[in-house]
Nucleic acid binder design. Structure first.
Lengths: 218, 218
DNA sequence: CTTTTATGAATGAAGG
DNA sequence: CCTTCATTCATAAAAG
């Protein structure tokens, strides 16, 4: 069944919320104030988690970006796929190979993974619409993209299981063909959501609070 | 078709520190499992705030840095769609696991080439198994490797022809694509990327619930 | 050791 | 759904 041919929807500009706002958001505890405990609902907790995850993601991306840029200057820029068509380059008279393949942003992927994980393995058309709507908050996306993503995702994990089973069932006496450096199939295939984590270290942003959890912050 | 997507390469275990810990991390405050609400102490609250602030700060600085770098050169191409959760860098800056890819031995390559040449351009599932079996006598290999090899090989040679065709601009009219393989340029609207310069805005979106909610609770 | 090239692998999209 | 194709990414290998 064919969905709409890649409708491209304009992503609504997100509220120009700046970091400062966030910063001041929770700023109650510092100055002393109530000694009472704070109570949060699961919902609030989830929202908070998301927020932090978003920042973590951004940081990770930026760090990554800078790494590659630092490593190989413009080469990195030239090879990058997501770039807009260079206005000047198009003069070559060739096909304007603008990006035509959707690439989920980390944020979108995170959401998709979560939905996928929820076991709701049957993305109905209606569901797709909803998801697409939500994801478009984080970047351009179409229902087709979402649909394809789920299809591919499903197929992929299925194959993975299949292979895993094959490996385990292997009763043959194979001559341990394993390189010293090589690690064979790892029994782990759980694709739990990979929350963006740790990367502050790379930048020298040493932050005890962040990395070691909520102990002794002082 | 594809079987195991990846078997000999596994992703290194990501550092356990995730946003999730925010939930359980505050054990001191009595964050028991399965409760309706999460309870946090002032200290924990402060830590959380700091944590977010740290991310915000890092992001700001990185974005800033990126901007200035992007200004100098045209690049600004940010390819952040890539998300292999493969940090492979610990806090110490040491690599945990080296991702390594299969490299065919000369012997294997020879056999593969021979099979490819035989015109059996249709590597079936069964066929792959046989080939893999044979090749494994000459070194470590998996069906995935074989499958990928054929896929790549085919694509490559196809591309070669295509490029070669670009040269013969003489015979007929200009529409150079005489090969049965036409670049399926989708009549789709060009959806440009949005990341590079304004990623902060995109991902910076945040639900007001958090700050407001936390405030009211406080 | 750094830069470039060759190619294995990942994945979005199309076809059946 | 499942299979196949095309494009892209990352890295081993080769070149400088």
């Amino acid at each position: 069944m064919e969905w709409e041919k890649q409708q491209q929807q304009q992503q609504p500009v997100a509220p120009p919320q700046t970091a400062e706002e966030l910063n001041s958001g929770g700023g109650g505890g510092g100055g002393g104030g109530g000694m009472f405990v704070k109570v949060m609902t699961d919902e609030q907790m989830e929202v908070l988690r998301k927020q932090i995850a978003v920042y973590a993601t951004i940081c990770e991306q930026l760090v990554d970006l800078h790494k590659s840029m630092a490593t190989q200057h413009d080469l990195a820029g030239a090879r990058l796929g997501n770039l807009y068509c260079d206005p000047l380059v198009t003069a070559a008279g060739h096909k304007i190979t603008g990006r035509q393949r959707w690439t989920p942003t980390p944020m979108q992927l995170q959401i998709l993974e979560r939905i996928f994980e929820q076991g709701n393995g049957t993305p109905s058309k209606q569901k797709i619409k909803e998801i697409t709507s939500e994801l478009s908050q984080h970047g351009q996306i179409s229902e087709t993209n979402v649909y394809n993503w789920f299809q591919n995702r499903r197929a992929r994990s299925k194959r993975k299981q299949q292979v895993a089973a094959t490996n385990n069932t292997e009763s043959e006496v194979e001559t341990e063909v394993e390189s010293p450096n090589e690690k064979k199939t790892k029994p782990e295939d759980l694709q739990s959501s990979h929350m963006p984590t740790s990367m502050a270290e790379d930048l020298g942003y040493q932050n005890p609070e962040v990395s070691s959890g909520m102990h002794s912050i002082d």
